[in-house]
Amino acid sequence: MSSLLHITNGDAFTSKLKKLKLTGDIITWREMLCEGKTETNVGSESFWKTRFEFLNKNYKVSKASFIEKTLKEYRSLCNHKQQDQIVLWFEYDLFCQVNLLAVISWLKIHRKYAQIYLVCSGKEDDTDVLYGLNELSDEHVLKLYETKTLLTQDDIEYADYVWQLYCSDNPIRLENLSDFKNFNFNYLESTIQAHLHRFPSIKNGLNEMETNILQLAMDKKPGSKGQFLSVLLKNQGVLGFSDNQFHNAINRLKPLFSSFNPVRLTQTGKAILKGETSYYSCMQENDVYLGGALKYNFLFNTESQRILKL
């Protein structure tokens, strides 16, 4: 008799999945590996130490909370050794795709005997809208489950390889990937591109997301910080970020805002948007990591769409 384990992308979808009463246990992957330093050895002591230090410093996550929410769930995953079929439930966005790579990298080492399936939501109808799992009806989720993709050994090796590159100190190696279409990851190429656009641009020293934050402040003229966060969440493309992440991003850009109630830019903020000046020297923090790479050791050339090492 084969047995099943489901690994989901978050608590909200875990709740939804429980109501569907599918066979098998459910583990929730509670991490946000798209932000902060990552190490290749997923689940190791140094991996979790690095992650806690980042989350504690940037999101005020306490040790007790980290142990309770993240480490206990990870230990539960470690203890689920009997299941020989594992279903991964993730979404199209950068947040999910980076977590997915890490989970597969872990499974490659610790669950060699298991068949690994992927259910990944995104393009679900004839529109250009991309859907998260929680936005789908129960019937649609069950249909995705019935047509889940069995990952080949090549898929697993490739996901692990991309994870190693994501954790390396040089994003140019990620930039040179070109064979995405040979593997069962429909959204990986677009999210790796979104990741590369998170390095500061030559044009104004801000990355694509930060520039977008200023542009939306200018265009939408939100009446309050709360309205501003709503606008950012709706207009973030394939990042898949939460309000906490945008709140932190706004705080980093605080000197470029004259007011948050209503939301207005300073003259410098407007000049940066026009490309008349750069914010690079003001933003240069020495310990900001994107995967394994230091954010401010690289620049993104928006014209050639290539990354340059400083």
Results as ranks from 00 to 15, higher is better:
I250V: 15
Y113L: 12
V98R: 04
Q153T: 11
L310D: 06
Q164N: 14
K37C: 12
Y117I: 08
Y187H: 05
T14F: 04
V288K: 04
I116A: 08
E189M: 04
L118E: 06
L118F: 11
T149H: 04
T28V: 12
A194G: 03
T277C: 13
K221G: 01
K60D: 14
K37S: 03
G237C: 11
E39S: 14
S259Q: 12
V87G: 02
E73L: 00
V238R: 10
L22M: 13
T147D: 12
L88S: 02
S259E: 14
H6R: 08
K108T: 12
K234P: 01
R264Y: 04
Y289H: 06
T38R: 08
D11K: 13
A12E: 11
L256T: 02
G291N: 04
I116W: 09
I116V: 15
C34G: 08
E91I: 01
L214Q: 05
D93S: 03
L17N: 07
K181N: 15
S230W: 03
E91M: 01
I26R: 08
G24M: 10
L55T: 09
I27F: 06
L232F: 06
A249L: 15
S230V: 08
Q284N: 13
D93L: 02
D11S: 12
E73Q: 09
T23P: 13
L142S: 00
P200K: 06
K16M: 13
R111K: 15
K123W: 07
T14P: 02
I104W: 07
E139H: 06
L310C: 11
W106G: 03
M283C: 10
C282S: 13
S46D: 14
F228R: 02
Q115H: 12
A217M: 07
L265V: 07
I7L: 06
A194F: 01
Y117A: 08
F90C: 00
F185C: 03
V263H: 07
G122I: 05
F199G: 01
Y279A: 14
L233I: 15
N212I: 00
Q305R: 11
N184A: 14
H195C: 02
N99E: 10
L144M: 07
N207I: 01
C282Q: 14
G10W: 08
C34T: 12
D138H: 10
L232W: 07
L151Q: 06
T277Y: 06
M32W: 15
E31M: 12
Y59V: 04
K72T: 11
I116L: 14
G205Q: 02
F241I: 08
S258L: 09
N244F: 15
P200R: 05
A102P: 08
S76D: 07
Q153S: 14
I192T: 05
I156M: 10
K57S: 15
L206W: 02
K37N: 06
